[in-house]
Design a protein around this nucleic acid. Structure first.
Lengths: 137, 137
DNA sequence: TTCCTTGCAAAACTTTTGCATTAAA
DNA sequence: TTTAATGCAAAAGTTTTGCAAGGAA
């Protein structure tokens, strides 16, 4: 039976990423469960568990992870990026008060029709965000 | 027959906004047609046509216009906001290379089904962005 | 040795804020 | 004259970059 850490080592290698110390620390936190974290939240988690990872390295590697398909970067906020450990196609609820995200499975949404892309272009992805506020009653 | 400028004066007043010089200059550029502009693009347009509007005033007023429903602020980019002069419900295409936005009318999209919001929450809005890239063939 | 990775601090970019000045009612 | 709006420059929040130092192959 392989040690716990080996799981992440393998996942990084499988995506063509050298498993360095910092990258493993980042993966251990971010990939532990399906979640959405901002860089700042992730940095706080890392520091809290004693991992020494600089801000520059964190950003560089989040970008790398996203490029290699290990995580997904969500741009749906004015200011910051969210990093999503769920790379399966899916959509999101967003609580407008807190900014918190919840997954919406593809099975929960069905399009009856969608417009065709303009000539010479193709659809790279569809982002659907259902913004939520507290009910008024 | 009223002068051209009167149109924007009236629109501002109709939204409870005092029509000051700067606000009229901003409205004249942004509301001239259905378009999507970033604050920086708008500032450049204003300066180019000789309007003196400071950055702070521009941002303050874009925020105000959005609050009062005169324009819509789009948060679909990592870093900057887009200001949309079309306040009718609609969706967007986004060219991933240039960031440019194109409207998608509500009639062009139909949902067969959507998930129910969690208890105590209601849907405040649905943002749909169809990301585009050049076709590969 | 050679190449890749890291860390720090500074820079970059967008947006907001404090406050004195100016314009508008 | 009283309130509201503006402009400037500085601050704030997030992300990127330059470069020297450290680590892996």
């Amino acid at each position: 039976m392989p040690g716990q850490g080996a799981v992440y080592t393998e996942r990084l290698l499988a995506h063509g990423i050298q498993p360095t110390q910092q990258r493993l620390r980042i993966a251990e936190v971010l990939l532990a469960s399906a979640q959405h974290l901002t860089a700042e939240q992730l940095l706080a988690s890392l520091r809290q568990r004693g991992a020494r990872v600089s801000k520059a390295t964190l950003y560089n590697n989040l970008k790398l992870f996203a490029e290699r398909g290990l995580i997904r970067e969500l741009l749906l906020d004015g200011s910051r990026s969210w990093f999503d450990s769920n790379v399966q196609p899916h959509y999101h609820f967003q609580d407008l008060e807190t900014g918190a995200l919840t997954d919406v499975g593809v099975a929960e949404v069905a399009f009856e029709h969608l417009p065709s892309p303009p000539p010479g272009m193709e659809v790279a992805g569809i982002d659907l965000v259902i913004r939520l506020r507290p009910s008024r009653r």
